[in-house]
Amino acid sequence: MNDPEAFVSGLKLLGAGLAMISAIGAGFGVGLAAFGGVQAMGRNPDAAPIIQTNMILGMAFAEAIAIYALAVALIIIFAA
């Protein structure tokens, strides 16, 4: 408590780490998309290109959550 600056920077790091918890959800989302996509491609290999495109699209949206978290974490560390 004798160095408030160090205390604040420590809290910043903690907050950045906590922000990245949302990566769990994004990971689940990406995994689910890949699971569904691969299963669908296995069932219907002819439609693989369309499924792949949509799978990557879905993964991108799921991943976006983690990216927002990353942005928040970066802003907390460097900009806040």
Binding site: A60, E63, A64, I67, Y68, L70, A71
Partner: peptide, 9 residues
Amino acid sequence: LSFGFRLFG
């Protein structure tokens, strides 16, 4: 935002 941070990250 998502485009940029995905590549950057």
